[in-house]
Design a binder for these strands. Structure first.
Length: 638
RNA sequence: GGGCCCGUAGCCCAGCACGGAUCAGGGCGUCAGCCUCCGAAGCUGAAGCGCGAAAGCUCAGAGACCGUGGGUUCGAAUCCCACCGGGCCCGCCA
């Protein structure tokens, strides 16, 4: 699978250990064993461990401790030829522990890190389409959307780090009821289609128009007719109302994108739902499914006059085409999914989107028939970041894809995550009295916290903290740093928690910059860079000086920094970027521990000082890389 | 009725995929310390029960609530089953 040597040496060490273990077991007559290694519970045991003797002992009816001695002594012999294995020792509980040859390991790790870019573990990866963000263009992003964005964007970054060719997709539902609601507000309820000065357009539409239109529906149900009129016009795609809606959607989308970019996320392509609908892909798929007999026309019963497919869970039926001939919601997801993994011809052309995106060209689908140089869709693997409430529908999509081509569901993955809700206190601050400890956000009710609002609050706090520490710096500098601190705090907070767990958002907790937070990482990095800025020496290490880096804190730091690729591999395999968050935090802790007790610039011996400088330099580079993988901005000083 | 997810310290979380080693790790909060010394957004230490103003003394010392109860296993926070509590999903809405 890996076509290139791993750059960070812990994986090398692990590979050596696995090989030695396998050979030792074979030499002792134990064959066909699954070789497994793990990190010992405690550093004093060693750097990698295996419980294989326990398994052998059980089968052979021997004492695990004795087997461990046998295996260890054989492994010790074989390990002499290995570069990174320093010592092998048995443990009477039935473990074999492997210790790193520290000086070689440190020397090679530092050299590898300082001599080149990290990442790109594979030379040529597969194409992976990752869809995320997907916010209806009628309101501003709230912190729940931010969880989606942070998860998706970090996945994009991890996949790219691992060498995959990623397409970051953002799906824009420009033809749904929520958009129609805004248009109803402008056209029939007298809302201005200009935001008041100083108010972001998406925030205006969400906070001041959408919530009020929804209320108006409750008071005057006849307004719903206006909504369905607008909806039909939008679906038709031509005419004055449709053109007007198109303009409004673009305006809101631009405002939303500004927030996405503020959070550090960028996209390769915008997929417009209206174009997906008009592309004819659904009709094509529907015809095939009919031929396969997977969709059936109901001639009687409660679903009379509709087309249905079997429900994957109950075996009952799920309507896909209504009796009026229109397709239901999943029928939009199915062609989109099929397009992503290339089960269907690509109907789209691609043009650059007229708003320029920092850090890369943003494309937009077109249906004008022109084919440009770039291509999207047809990926080997597609990942959709969508919250857990859509799991059922996503399973239906998977089932249909499988029917369309065997094995497709393995190439179409749903990365689900739990929603973000608001704590009782935070809801109260927003003027909502709730029962229970938390409340689900609701765009309709106006119960939500906008991303921009949150970032601004974080930034205000970060500004005063930064100013306090940097009295002489110009305002623009402080502003820039405060923005980075704010983004780091929000992204890290949303990323570090397991996606399966609901986040109960609370202003008080979220405004914390101490402990296991994004700012802690920024601070640790700045501390490391400070050492390198202030020094007379130059990072340099050779065999002799590497052998002098023997304090446990130096070893711990070197070991930790060389495990980034291990975390990145896990993050990729389980679509779980929080691995990177855990890694980065541990690295920062290891660095701060080192920092407190090991002098660098104050070290009098220049050789040792320079070797430590090299270690600090390497560790800081890895820390910066891990922060980049999470989309956290990196600053040399904060 | 069927399905998915969560339940770990006062609070918030890690560990669960691949079951293992003596104390199940962090963070927040609380208390006490550390800036003439590479940045204090950091680091170090303390917190079983009872008595005592306190130094301290007595008790606890196999088994200490990983939601509960079973099971599998030499071994379970981790796997299986049941139950309890919480959240979500099962529309000819999107």
């Amino acid at each position: 699978m890996r076509t290139q040597e791993p750059r960070l040496k812990f994986l090398d060490f692990q590979a050596e250990v696995e090989e030695v273990l396998a050979d030792s077991c074979r030499a002792l007559g134990f064959k066909d064993l699954q070789i497994e290694v793990s990190l010992p519970p405690n550093d004093t045991y060693g750097d990698l461990a295996s419980a294989i003797p326990i398994r052998i002992a059980k089968e052979a009816g021997k004492n695990p401790g004795d087997v461990a001695i046998e295996v260890a002594s054989k492994a010790m012999e074989l390990a002499k030829k290995k570069r990174y294995i320093g010592a092998v020792s048995p443990h009477r509980g039935g473990y074999v522990n492997f210790q790193i040859n520290h000086s070689r390991f440190i020397l090679d790790s530092i050299s590898a890190i300082s001599s080149g870019d990290l990442g790109a573990v594979r030379e040529k990866g597969e194409t992976v389409a990752i869809e995320h963000t997907n916010v209806n263009p009628n309101k501003a992003l709230h912190i729940g959307h931010a969880r989606n964005l942070v998860l998706g964007d970090s996945l994009v970054r991890v996949m790219r780090y691992m060498g995959q060719q990623v397409q970051a997709l953002n799906y824009v539902d420009d033809s749904g009821a929520q958009v129609a609601d805004i248009i109803v507000g402008f056209k029939f309820l007298g809302f201005s289609d200009e935001a008041p000065p100083g108010v972001k357009y998406d925030i205006y539409c969400g906070d001041s128009v959408y919530t009020k239109v929804t209320k108006a529906y409750e008071q005057d149900p006849s307004l719903k007719e206006k909504q369905s009129f607008v909806l039909k016009e939008i679906e038709k795609g031509t005419g004055e109302t449709a053109d007007y809606a198109r303009g409004i959607v673009r305006k809101i989308l631009s405002a939303q994108l500004a927030t996405c970019w503020r959070l550090g996320a960028t996209y390769d392509l915008l997929n417009w739902e209206s174009q997906l609908v008009h592309s004819g892909m659904w009709e094509q798929i529907f015809e095939s499914l009919k031929k396969m007999g997977y969709v059936k026309f109901q001639t009687e019963g409660e679903n009379k006059g509709t087309w249905v497919i079997p429900d994957p869970e109950t075996g009952e039926e799920k309507v896909v085409v209504r009796s009026d001939g229109t397709a239901v919601y999943v029928a939009k997801d199915i062609p989109y999914a099929a397009w992503k993994i290339g089960l269907i011809g690509d109907p789209f052309g691609y043009e650059t989107y007229p708003v320029s995106q920092p850090g890369g060209v943003l494309y937009s689908t077109t249906l004008d028939g022109k084919k440009g140089k770039v291509h999207f869709g047809g990926a080997r693997l597609a990942i959709s970041v969508i919250d857990t409430r859509q799991s059922y529908l996503q399973r239906i999509v998977s089932k249909v894809l499988d029917r369309f081509r065997e094995g497709s569901s393995k190439r179409y993955l749903h990365r689900s995550y739990e929603v973000v809700s608001l704590s009782k206190n935070t809801a109260a601050q927003l003027g909502f009295a709730i029962e229970g400890d938390f409340a689900h956000m609701s765009g309709r009710k106006g119960l939500y916290v906008n991303v921009d609002t949150m970032l601004d609050r974080l930034k205000d706090k970060a500004k005063s903290e930064t100013r306090r520490r940097n009295l002489a710096e110009p305002e623009a500098w402080v502003d820039d740093v405060a923005e980075a601190v704010a983004v780091s705090a929000l992204r890290y907070e949303l990323l570090k928690q397991d996606p399966d767990k609901m986040i109960v958002f609370d202003f008080y907790d979220a405004l914390r910059f101490q402990g296991d937070t994004g700012p802690y990482l920024l601070y640790s990095y700045a501390r490391a860079r400070r050492i390198l800025d202030k020094t007379e020496g130059k990072p340099a290490i050779d065999e002799k000086s590497a052998a002098r880096l023997t304090s446990p804190k130096e070893l711990k730091l070197a070991k930790q920094m060389s495990m980034l690729d291990l975390s990145a591999e896990t993050a990729e395999e389980f679509l779980s970027p929080k691995e990177i968050a855990r890694f980065a935090h541990e690295l920062a802790v290891a660095f701060n521990d080192f920092y407190e007790s090991v002098p660098v610039n104050k070290e009098e011996d220049p050789q040792l000082r320079d070797a430590r400088l090299a270690l600090v330099d390497a560790a800081s580079r890895v820390l910066a890389e891990s922060m980049r993988l999470m989309g956290i901005p990196v600053k040399d000083r904060i």
